[in-house]
Amino acid sequence: MNVPSEHLLFLAAGLFAIGVLGFLIRRNVIIVLMCIELMLNAANLTFLAASRQHSTAQVANLDGAVFSIFVILVAACEAAVGLALIIALFRLKQTVEADSLSEMKG
């Protein structure tokens, strides 16, 4: 694929912006978590674009790929804990709307 790495970064920026948009305007906590996953994917794409940019035809740079593996791992952990929290909250409050979860407002 002869696409310049900038275009990978354009795609990553677009995906990240969509993730931020959803994170800020949606109230359903599950969809907020999904938007975080979208942003993590955009970060992955940025790592891979940088890795690709710093590779030569002879020597491949794999730092971005290794970082992406760790990002995927952290995303899996975050989804597991986040969804467990959502289930606990749902049992407590019978809702997943962020606006109705305001016990910690102080």
Partner: peptide, 8 residues
């Protein structure tokens, strides 16, 4: 950026 040097 420099042009991509990775062969497809």
């Amino acid at each position: 950026f420099q042009p991509v040097r990775v062969e497809p």
